[in-house]
């Protein structure tokens, strides 16, 4: 079943020209996309390609200038639907520091349910369940600014989870983190996905795309390709055109395979790739 549907969606930003007149800049243009419930979708593209715009269109933070976005059958352009839509689509942004509304972890996570008017005992229940899901329950009483970037971002995810959404949109949520923090956040995202959550991961780190069900490649406001990670990485001319690169190990595996070695083209584990090469040489 599809949970989010974008139909020929365009969004333009107001932009000031050099002579001071107001023009417009393309955010996204003519995007048609469908996201299936329970899937793990990655949105990739280099900076300014419109992926964050697309994310903000998915929960009504932005309303399309033309075309329609529907979440679970509800049109985001209808203001009456907006809270129902945001209850369904949780969103986590890039900078963890700018998403914290309280100076104690549990109170920050409680912000969403408090807004929804959830009765007090259930808020506590939701907060601890959400913190449990991201593995941060022991930090419930801490102050977020003492935590690492990855931990803060997990708190932000817990904040979104406490609303009990069906879709989690991670808008470049790993961009500011160190590799360890990125790993933490991705592990949580995958665990949630296994539990049935639809995840939309927006990123420009191609390594993060490997485990996704499908990859949406964007360039200049347009969706240029939708496919499985394997398909996308095979198409090196496509990636080159939009300024992206396949992960190094995969690129190497592809080159080795092209050179006649008997290795899988989508081998992502450098150690295993080494083993494959040895096996192939022995033959």
């Amino acid at each position: 079943m599809e949970i989010i549907r974008l139909d020929n969606v365009s969004y333009y930003y107001k932009a000031y020209n050099d002579d001071g007149t107001v023009g417009s800049a393309v955010g996204v243009e003519g995007v048609t996309l469908s996201i299936e419930e329970g899937s793990f979708v990655a949105l990739v593209g280099h900076n300014g390609c419109g992926k964050s715009t697309l994310a903000k269109l998915m929960n009504g933070l932005l309303i399309p200038k033309s075309g329609t976005v529907t979440v679970n059958g509800l049109n985001t352009a209808d203001r009456d639907n907006i809270f129902e839509i945001r209850k369904n689509v949780g969103m986590v942004f890039q900078n963890p520091d700018n998403q914290m509304v309280a100076s104690i972890v549990e109170e920050d996570v409680a912000f969403g349910p408090e807004n929804l008017g959830v009765p007090q005992p259930e808020i506590v229940e939701r907060v601890y369940e959400a913190l449990e899901q991201v593995g941060m329950a022991e930090y419930a009483k801490s102050s977020p600014h003492r935590l690492s970037g990855g931990q803060k971002q997990r708190i932000a995810i817990a904040g979104a989870l406490a609303i009990r959404p069906r879709v989690l949109v991670l808008d470049e949520s790993t961009a500011m983190l160190d590799p360890l923090g990125r790993r933490e956040v991705l592990d949580v995202a995958h665990k949630l996905n296994v539990g049935g959550m639809t995840v939309v991961l927006i990123t420009h780190f191609m390594e993060e795309v490997l485990d996704c069900d499908s990859v949406v490649v964007m360039d200049n406001g347009h969706v240029v390709r939708v496919g499985t990670p394997g398909e996308i990485f095979e198409d090196s001319s496509l990636l080159g055109n939009v300024g992206l690169k396949a992960p190094r190990t995969i690129a190497l595996a592809q080159k080795l395979a092209d050179a006649g070695f008997d290795v899988p083209r989508d081998q992502r584990d450098a150690g295993k790739l080494g083993g494959d090469v040895c096996q192939s040489l022995k033959k």
């Binding site: 809270f83 969103m91 998403q99 807004n115 907060v127 979104a160």
Partner: peptide, 23 residues
């Protein structure tokens, strides 16, 4: 920061004091 915070708060269904509860 304020802009990002506003987005984050909106995404978490903030709509002022109406019907709000407190943990």
């Amino acid at each position: 920061r304020a802009e990002e915070l506003a987005n984050a708060m909106n995404s978490r269904c903030y709509e002022g004091a109406t019907k709000r509860t407190c943990m």
